[in-house]
């Protein structure tokens, strides 16, 4: 199996200016392979989001080495990182982070705009991806005209539309009720079945149990890293 992500001795320190510095990540090393399904767990403030942001090239580590698909990204400049985020990474956030004034279609088209895809091709792919997440009949709805679960599915479609190497989901069900949360997890699991590499942050043990592998963070350190022996799969009925 090919390594998609390779982190070596990643440190992230927030210099608080006088006050004691915050060591959000301390010496984290981690390798993620293609088509892996990894769950990151840990208490609040343990550094899960910080790690995800670094993996997602939204943030840069204070020190350490980060290779993405074999390319060293720790020394890339802002524009190169933007390109990686655009083409190689699909990010799903807890708070959806959709453009409030744009409809579902435009939200999903957005990464393709920055990728320089032509308008007709953009539209076609965005529509297709929205259909894939069962929102074919909601493409012209704005976020505030959609339910929480539907919004998160728009966000998943946006993450998927560029065919990224990896999908990162930071507590994607955190703002959803249990039932819609399950629907989203089913969707993510389906993506994994279709060959996507997935990194998922969650609080909930029962959600993490669907992953291949679970990492526990504590105070910015990897406390445990283990394979899931008895993986669960979702059996929710097909969402409509």
């Amino acid at each position: 199996m090919r390594n998609v992500i390779e982190l070596r001795s990643i440190v992230k320190t927030y210099d608080m200016g006088g006050v004691e510095a915050v060591h959000a990540l301390q010496n984290v090393s981690l390798t993620i392979q293609s088509n892996e399904y990894l769950a990151i767990m840990g208490p609040s403030g343990s550094g899960k989001s910080t790690l995800m942001n670094i993996i997602g090239c939204l943030d840069t580590p204070t020190s350490g080495m980060y290779e993405f698909n074999g390319i060293n990204v720790s020394e890339m400049d802002d524009n190169e990182l933007a390109k990686i985020r655009n083409k190689e990474i699909g990010f799903v956030f807890q708070t959806f982070n959709l453009l409030a004034r744009s409809d579902a279609l435009h939200n999903v088209e957005l990464p393709l705009i920055y990728a320089g895809v032509s308008a007709t091709e953009r539209r076609r792919r965005a529509k297709q991806t929205l259909e894939h997440v069962q929102l074919g009949d909601r493409i012209h709805h704005k976020p505030n005209e959609l339910s929480g679960g539907q919004r998160q599915r728009v966000a998943v479609a946006r993450a998927l539309v560029t065919n990224p190497s990896i999908i990162l989901a930071d507590e994607p069900t955190g703002n959803l009720d249990t039932k819609t949360g399950k629907e989203i997890m089913k969707l993510i699991e389906d993506l994994h079945h279709q060959g996507n590499t997935i990194v998922l942050v969650t609080h909930e043990g029962y959600i993490a149990e669907h992953a291949h592998r679970i990492i526990h963070l504590l105070d910015g350190k990897v406390e445990s890293d283990e394979k899931v022996l008895k993986r669960k799969t979702y059996t929710v009925p097909q969402v409509s």
Binding site: A82, K83, R85, N86, L99, A100, Y114, R158
Partner: peptide, 16 residues
């Protein structure tokens, strides 16, 4: 600010 963050997160370069 939030909108800018979203656009940057999904790959908008500075120039854009």
């Amino acid at each position: 600010t939030k909108e800018i963050g979203i656009r940057k997160a999904i790959g908008a370069p500075k120039r854009t």
